[in-house]
Design a protein around this nucleic acid. Structure first.
Ligand SMILES: [Mn+2]
Ligand SMILES: [Mn+2]
Ligand SMILES: [Mn+2]
Ligand SMILES: [Mn+2]
Lengths: 222, 222
DNA sequence: AGATTTGTTTAGGCTGTCCTAAAATATCCG
DNA sequence: CGGATATTTTAGGACAGCCTAAACAAATCT
């Protein structure tokens, strides 16, 4: 099988690729928290195994096989996150860390068992889609809450899971996937947004708002 | 923290110690599936960390700290085995392998969550006691089924979890912890035992019977 | 274009865990 | 007891994954 390190690199390449074509070694090194030279080394190894294509000094791209591996790991990760939240009562800001370690060691049987126990879910607690067993992933592009204009309404579909602190902040305020929101105000000069959710309204900085993806309802400015 | 390899060595030393005083490096190597030289190397490292005491050419013993570490890992292992069986519907012959990998990566929070979800259990699916959080272990010595004489009755308390094949064999026949058994016959020359459990009687070889621990009820030969 | 800055790769090392082969020690047995 | 045998340790290496420093290539600026 592939080592934990290799799995993590493939996952990181996948995520960087999502945000823009080929991936530079320095971006990869940054994401993995290692020196650039270490990333180059691993990339060469992965290229030898045909999991990525490496064009020296240009960047890396996952091969079909590499992408499949990456999605397999991501499937484990997201199923685990959901399982930890639903079955074990983890708060959604803690699931990521635990899933990060578990994703590499669970068997296919474990994966299948929790998949069934959860009722064949399609999204993790942060709204990210769970890749199917055949490494198929349905990506839905939603608007950043920070891009909506005052008056716009919609439903939160996804929240970036990169910052536990932020997740806690948003969780307390009920700003979680499936919550309905309405933009009341948007201050100029990159100022904060005032957002109503349920009966309460919240003032959110642009930065935070940009990490929330919303499915906008067509504004009826009748 | 301690590496996975170190944890596995400590656990192996613990189990070998249970069966008889100090542990030889070759026994340890055998248990770990590594060359004798590798075991010596790890023992020296563990000794440097005061987790074991090593008397060259004589053997190893766990220190108090080493025993604590070992029991911590064993607690993880047994809680996981029980959780996999109870919560995820694993068959009892498959839990060991999965727990073997998970035991090293779960957090203390995960441990606590499954401990509570299981209702603070005291024994794993094979009847082995689960060490308490403070690394306390209540060991109960029971008789081997193979040592009982015809007419003896009792309750199965523990089954060796070392052989998945055997667990499947016994599971099918209902010879699991808490099952009541009665020895009907014991053939001479290390021959098989005939054991009644429920309405059925089973013929078990000595080898298998020696892996089943029974709490004998006082025979009333009135 | 040529020079400088920035990003990437190569070279050489370190650590952890494993290996085989050789040396050291303990045990066993006549 | 003393030599043969079995066990254990030491020596020397491999491999994975990381590091820093130096060499190299690409992009950028003048
Ligand atoms: Mn899988
Ligand atoms: Mn997530
Ligand atoms: Mn623990
Ligand atoms: Mn067990």
């Amino acid at each position: 099988m592939f080592s934990q390190a290799m799995q993590d690199y493939l996952k990181a390449i996948y995520k960087l690729q999502e945000q823009g074509g080929t991936v530079s070694t320095s971006a990869l090194a940054e994401a993995m928290g290692v020196a650039a030279a270490s990333a180059t080394g691993m990339v060469k190894k992965l290229a030898g195994l045909k999991l990525v294509r490496h064009h020296p000094y240009q960047g890396v791209v996952l091969s079909k096989a590499g992408e499949k591996m990456a999605l397999e790991v991501i499937r484990h990760h997201r199923l685990l996150e959901l399982y930890l939240a639903e079955a074990l009562g983890y708060s959604w800001d803690k699931v990521h860390e635990e899933a990060e370690r578990l994703e590499h060691v669970i068997s296919e049987e474990f994966e299948e068992k929790i998949f069934q126990a959860l009722g064949r879910p399609t999204h993790d607690p942060h709204g990210d889609p769970i890749p199917a067993k055949d490494a198929t992933l349905v990506v839905a592009e939603h608007d950043r809450l920070s891009d909506l204009e005052p008056g716009a309404t919609g439903v939160i579909r996804q929240v970036s899971d990169s910052d536990a602190e932020m997740l806690r902040y948003l969780g307390i305020r009920g700003l979680v996937p499936d919550a309905a929101v309405e933009v009341l105000d948007k201050a100029p000069f990159n100022g904060p947004l005032t957002v109503k959710s349920g009966e309460t309204s919240h003032v959110l900085g642009r930065e935070v708002a940009s990490h929330i993806r919303v499915e906008a309802r067509a504004t009826d400015d009748a």
